[in-house]
Computed example of a mutant assay.
Amino acid sequence: MNYPENKVMKAFEIYTVLARDGVAPKEAVHEYIADDSVRSLLDSFSYKVDAAIIRTSEALYLVPKSKLSPFHVSNEWIKKNYLRSGATNADIYLLYFAAIVLFGSFYDRYNSQEPTIQFLRLDDWVKNMNERISYLSSHDEEELIKAEKEMSYNWRAIIDKWEDMDDIKETAKRQTGNTISRMSFIDTAKRFLISQGLIQDIGNGEVALTEKAKTIIQRYFMEEGHNKGIFEFMYSFEEREE
């Protein structure tokens, strides 16, 4: 399809900002909604780099769809910037797991399309992590191994990593990444998700989802085809018991 030169330049201008910053301002949202040509071009540009354009009322976001995207955040980058020296892939798995549990806390086990709470306390985040790990541990070894192969997700490493962490001082009001504890790990997860624009610290030990996070969750995380059944596996075992 042929596009007028001014449309191509406008779309490329917005894409340049997205590629550089990962986000484009409200003016870009207006262009994306109002102009079919600009929207089509931006979607084509993002498709070529295995990414997606996520639109909220306030901004456009460029989000990688797979590891093949040049905008994908690598495990090594996360280890270097957020995890302690000597971190392994098990720490990465646990970090992603913490994010999934956080999202699930807002969305009532992924049965709702809108958040059911407005904010989450960090100590409740730790509590929810404990509950999820406990339910995962209730699976027998063979079932966990089978699930790992199907989902490419190391459930046993997640369980071991979390259970190895100290939980004696979990009630302390302030803990940082310098302490090997579950609360300090949640503090690390919080800082990482804030850096990715997915949550915001609202004070008093509480966090809230951003509009970017809500849009991504509704568009991708709720779909089993995108999440490989990970969420269903995390919660269905509990439902069977009930």
Rank of each mutant, 00 (worst) to 15 (best):
R182T: 02
T171P: 05
Q196Y: 13
E148N: 12
K149L: 14
F233G: 00
E148G: 07
E211V: 05
E170G: 01
E142G: 14
I199F: 01
N178L: 13
A189I: 08
R219D: 12
Y220N: 05
E148M: 14
E143T: 07
D166H: 11
S181K: 01
M234T: 01
D166I: 09
S236C: 10
M222D: 00
G225H: 00
A157I: 10
E206F: 11
R219P: 04
E170M: 09
K212E: 08
F221Y: 13
G205P: 11
I145W: 01
M151T: 13
E131I: 14
D160V: 11
A147G: 04
E142A: 15
D201H: 07
E150R: 14
D160P: 04
V207L: 09
H226P: 00
M222R: 05
D164P: 07
H226V: 13
I199N: 00
I230K: 03
S138F: 13
N204A: 14
S138L: 15
S195R: 13
M151I: 12
R132N: 07
I194M: 12
S181N: 09
I216S: 11
W155C: 07
Y220E: 06
F185G: 01
T215E: 13
T171E: 02
I230V: 08
T171L: 03
D140M: 06
K146C: 03
K214F: 06
K161T: 03
D166G: 06
K161F: 06
S236W: 08
G205D: 09
S195H: 12
I145K: 02
G203S: 08
G203Q: 14
E206N: 12
G225I: 01
G203A: 09
G229I: 10
M234D: 00
N154E: 11
L198T: 13
R219S: 13
E148F: 12
I180K: 03
H139D: 07
K214D: 04
Q218S: 15
F185M: 12
A208Q: 10
F221Q: 07
F233E: 00
W162M: 02
V207Q: 04
Q196K: 15
H139G: 02
I133R: 00
I159N: 01
Y135S: 06
A213N: 05
W162E: 02
E206S: 13
A213L: 03
H226S: 07
M222N: 08
D166P: 07
K212G: 06
S184N: 08
T215Q: 02
R132V: 14
S181V: 04
I194S: 04
Y220S: 04
L198F: 15
K149E: 14
T210Q: 08
K146E: 08
S184H: 01
W162G: 02
E223M: 03
A208H: 06
I202M: 07
I186A: 03
R156T: 08
G225L: 01
L209W: 02
Q218V: 10
K228L: 15
K190L: 07
V207R: 04
E206I: 09
R191W: 03
F185A: 05
E148I: 13
D164H: 10
E224W: 02
E142R: 12
K173S: 15
K190W: 07
E211N: 15
I159W: 02
H226A: 10
I217Y: 06
I145G: 03
S138I: 12
M222V: 08
W155G: 03
K161I: 00
S236E: 11
W155F: 15
D166M: 09
L136P: 01
S137R: 08
G229F: 12
S236G: 09
N227Y: 15
G177P: 10
T179I: 15
